[in-house]
């Protein structure tokens, strides 16, 4: 009986610890959360979204769309907000329609802002869940 009690107590303790660990990490924001007033977010934050386009002139720039928004309209070109981001680290850049978790901070520029990424985590690709994905195609 004692052994079982000990087992139960240890399990509860482990669960409690795990729960605490979760809260110590950065709260993940969505593009939706930041899109109206990005510069109100100061310091380092973490955002999740979907890589939606890439700059032709500067390989380090790409845009990120809100995951839920994209899954709802199913088209990278449906006109929803796309956040500009820049990553110049050593890890490979995401591909089109990759879900990403990006950590970094907003940088104000003369004509707006972008999100400077310090840590990039690429998750699954959701291209197969989108319908039209060609720019300029007839709809």
């Amino acid at each position: 009986m004692k052994k079982i009690l000990l087992f139960v107590l240890i399990t509860l303790f482990a669960v409690g610890c795990a729960k605490d660990n979760g809260e110590a990490e950065l709260h993940i924001l969505s593009i939706y959360n930041i899109q109206n007033d990005p510069l109100a977010f100061t310091g380092v934050i973490k955002i999740d979204g979907v890589a939606s386009s890439f700059s032709e002139s500067d390989a380090t720039f790409f845009t990120v769309m809100d995951t839920n928004e994209l899954l709802a309209c199913r088209n990278l070109y449906c006109g929803a907000y796309a956040m500009p981001a820049r990553y110049s680290g050593s890890d490979p850049l995401p591909e089109l329609a990759d879900m990403v978790d990006i950590t970094g901070s907003f940088v104000q520029t003369d004509d707006g802002y972008y999100f400077e990424v310090t840590e990039l985590v690429v998750r699954q690709n959701i291209m197969h869940r989108l319908t039209l994905s060609n720019p300029g195609g007839t709809q």
Partner: peptide
């Protein structure tokens, strides 16, 4: 309704 941030948490305005 819009969103901004207070202490890096999204808040409705």
């Amino acid at each position: 309704t819009q969103t901004t941030a207070v202490q890096n948490r999204p808040v409705s305005v």
